[in-house]
Amino acid sequence: MEVEKWHNVAFAWAGIFATVSFAIFITLATNVDSWVFGEDLLSTLRHSDNVDARIFLNLGCVFSGLLLVTFGTGNILYHRNHDQSVGGGLVAIAGIVLIFIGLITADLSSEVMYNYLEGAFATLMLLSMAVFAAGNWVADHKVFAGISMILFASGVATVVTFSFEMMEAIGICIGLIWIVIESVRLMIEKPNAGGKVGVSGRVRQ
């Protein structure tokens, strides 16, 4: 899908706001509850006695999920190759899954369903990292592709090495860093006036 006027910077800000809102809400939720990094699962906050912790967790997931869908849509609209649009689609689906994670409260679903959604979200994010690494490499954003490659490898190593609790905590940190970096990449994409975009933003004739 091609569009004439580019609003890529606005969509890139959605990605940055998604990470900031998620970080703020999760920090608030973990601070009002006695949650320990790497020792407790985030899903334990769903059963917290403190109602604020539960609300912050769910709000964080829903807000960030909505913004992640916006960011993924931006990548579908403003792409240089199909890899980037497929990666954007995967991020948008991951955002929808995150919204469901926020909407499904403890009294609505079982732990199995919740863990399934969490696993789906992590898998989609890892897949989109790999796809974006390939797409950015072809699109001459080689440094961004390299960073995506390193973060993807780190994510896989985290899944293999650590316990589930530590894996979840470190995986979230890796995901947040990656979304910020991809947002910066989307931000520096230059407008496409019908033709292909040059490396330094000049439109090829």
Partner: peptide
Amino acid sequence: DMLLFVTFLTAAVSMVLTIMG
């Protein structure tokens, strides 16, 4: 291009090996 890829690969390998201990 290839050298940049191998350098990123080296960085990724060092990161993975550090995480895995």
